[in-house]
Amino acid sequence: MTHYESTGHLLLTPVDREAPARALRLREMGLGERVDAELDAFARRVADTLGAPYAGVNFVGEERQFFAGLHHGPDAAAGGYPARVLPRDHGYCPHVVVRRRALVLEDVRDFARFAGNAVVDGSGVRSYLGAPLTDRHGFVLGTVCAVDVVPRRWGTQGLATAKALAAELGGLLDDRSARRG
């Protein structure tokens, strides 16, 4: 369903009715509040596997996103991207979380809804691939994502790889949460 502001303008970030429950689940699992070396290593694996200069493990809360795992390769441009914390209306991960489906944007400028996002001008994002990170209870906690500063073809293999990595990490997080509690 497409949501509009009261002014009739298309919302750039979708309404997230599951955000309060997700935020509670993230707290229960001890996720989304601090940098995690294991998740940084996983993000590095995502970047290496997909051949992307940037990758992240992003948890989407009620008001913000937090990249508990983040990687930028040696060839990544210096500058504002990537940031560990982003407002909920920046980037593309909130779309993945609300839709509960992967999102592939070979060139974000090709899509009016995505071209005007703050990360395009502020951080130079041109290409995005994100898959939902789901726990065993069916909560979409966030995303596993890869980003490039140039348009690129992720292809069906890239999409399948991102989904597989997200499923693997979901299982690992469930196991880690079970050991904690």
Rank of each mutant, 00 (worst) to 15 (best):
L129Q: 00
L70E: 13
A43G: 06
Y81M: 14
P132N: 07
G73S: 15
V144F: 02
G171A: 10
R126C: 05
A76P: 04
L10T: 13
R44P: 09
E28F: 07
A160Y: 07
V96L: 02
R25Y: 09
T13P: 04
F139V: 02
G32E: 00
P53K: 03
R109Y: 10
L39Y: 03
V147W: 01
A47C: 06
R176A: 12
G30R: 06
A41D: 15
V104Q: 03
Y81P: 07
P132F: 03
E28R: 12
F114L: 04
R100H: 07
V15M: 08
G80D: 15
G155C: 06
A41S: 02
A102D: 06
S6I: 13
R153I: 11
A77G: 15
Y81F: 15
D48V: 14
Y54C: 06
L103A: 02
R27K: 14
T143K: 01
A19E: 08
A23H: 10
T2R: 14
G61A: 14
D175P: 09
D36A: 13
H72K: 13
F139P: 10
V46R: 01
T13D: 00
P74Y: 02
K163W: 08
A102K: 03
R84T: 09
G181A: 13
V149L: 15
L31P: 05
G124K: 05
A76D: 04
G171Q: 11
R153H: 15
G80K: 13
R101T: 12
G61F: 01
G116Y: 09
V144D: 00
A41Q: 14
T143W: 04
L105C: 06
L105K: 01
G142H: 05
V98E: 03
C93K: 05
F67R: 12
A76K: 07
G138T: 07
L105H: 00
H90K: 12
F59V: 03
Q157C: 08
E168K: 08
R27M: 12
L172R: 15
A146Q: 00
A112V: 15
G155V: 08
L26P: 00
H90P: 04
H9M: 11
G56K: 05
D148Y: 04
V57P: 05
T161E: 06
G138F: 02
H3E: 14
L133K: 04
D48M: 11
G124E: 07
T161A: 12
H137T: 13
Y81D: 04
L165W: 01
G91K: 01
R64A: 09
A118E: 14
T49H: 04
G158I: 08
C145D: 12
G170M: 03
T13M: 07
V97W: 01
F67T: 11
P20E: 14
H90E: 09
A76N: 00
R101I: 09
V120M: 00
D110A: 12
E106V: 02
L105Y: 04
L70S: 14
L103N: 03
L133I: 08
Y4L: 15
G155P: 10
F59Q: 02
